[in-house]
């Protein structure tokens, strides 16, 4: 495929706008620029000859951009002929990066999109032949999971690269209009929501918005949600908890009402701190759990007396009749 002779190519002969094989961000990492400035190009780029003595970049988009920024006039390169299969060269470009680092989700998304739209590869063939190359096995769901992520705004792409948002959350964002994405991004930032909580919150918000016949933007912009986000005295995690409570009241009104009644009963019991009463999860079964710790006979007797009191005051009956 490639003649192993190293050529010195004049940079003006290289078509810098030809992005046929490009799938990475064009931003040059500063360490790479500094390395080239100090030691020169240690790893030659790979070019493909085009008509009229011009060249197209196969591998080394960032290295070349660094050379350009350093005002270099030539670049050391291996050259492949125009007749070489473009798909083979794209595969080479993928493997060139994979040999030194892991591809980020946006790069994977770009590769999958290019395989389909630029190189005309059918989805089935991508699953069979290219997903394993990218380290995914023949899992068709990967296509769905990565599809379109490269079209997200740079901010979302950066969040993906930094592993601050999950792939399915990013997919969810793709389906939403830009205004909604912006509202969600601000909310995620204000509440410092990690990947797991992002999913939990977006589901709750989307459900509540539907129940209230609002758009997601309208719901996030609503006064109660804004008040929680802007509350100065609350930490981000307290804000998240407060918002979750508010959303649960909207999403599960009957459950939260019963839960509030239960909490009121427990508060009214004025139990000493060594006694705990646990309601069944979501009041689904009817088994309550009462437990206490003790360090002495006196302690034990006091706890039994306190439990007897809540029984005599009818609070146990009230609890068991809640749901």
């Amino acid at each position: 495929m490639m003649n192993k002779v190293l050529y010195t190519i004049a940079i003006p002969d290289i078509d810098l706008d030809d992005d046929l094989y490009q799938y990475s961000s064009p931003v040059v990492p500063e360490p790479l620029r500094l390395s080239i400035q100090r030691f020169g190009l240690l790893n030659p780029i790979i070019l493909q000859r085009k008509a009229r003595s011009a060249y197209r970049i196969v591998c080394g988009f960032k290295r070349l951009a660094a050379l350009v920024s350093l005002k270099a006039e030539t670049a050391q390169a291996f050259v492949v002929e125009e007749s070489c299969s473009q798909l083979d060269l794209f595969t080479l470009a993928i493997q060139d990066n994979q040999s030194v680092r892991e591809l980020d989700p946006v790069e994977v998304a770009t590769i999958l999109a290019k395989l389909q739209s630029t190189f005309g590869i059918k989805k089935e063939d991508i699953v069979t032949n290219y997903l394993p190359l990218l380290g995914f096995g023949k899992n068709a769901r990967v296509l769905t999971l990565y599809s379109g992520l490269h079209t997200l705004s740079v901010e979302w792409q950066d969040a993906l690269k930094k592993d601050m948002v999950s792939l399915d959350f990013a997919q969810d964002m793709l389906k939403r209009p830009p205004e909604e994405r912006q509202h969600i991004k601000t909310l995620v930032h204000n509440l410092r929501l990690g990947k797991n909580r992002q999913r939990e919150f977006i589901k709750l918000l989307a459900d509540v918005a539907r129940l209230e016949d609002l758009s997601l933007s309208q719901l996030i912009a609503s006064r109660p949600v804004q008040m929680i986000q802007l509350a100065e005295k609350l930490t981000p995690s307290q804000k998240a908890e407060r918002l979750k409570e508010w959303l649960w009241e909207k999403r599960y009104p009957q459950y939260t009402a019963i839960k509030a009644q239960y909490d009121a009963i427990v508060r009214a019991a004025h139990l000493p701190p060594n006694i705990h009463i646990h309601a069944p999860a979501f009041f689904e079964n009817n088994e309550y759990l009462a437990s206490f710790t003790f360090v002495s006979k006196d302690d034990f007797e006091k706890s039994i007396t306190a439990l007897s009191e809540i029984l005599n005051r009818g609070l146990v009956k009230k609890m068991s009749e809640l749901a």
Partner: peptide
């Protein structure tokens, strides 16, 4: 479908079910 917007909560068997009073 709006049926998934019901008050469906995890049951003892971990299936999602309507809150018991419902």
């Amino acid at each position: 479908s709006r049926i998934f917007l019901g008050e469906l909560l995890p049951g003892i068997d971990k299936k999602l079910r309507y809150f018991k009073p419902i």
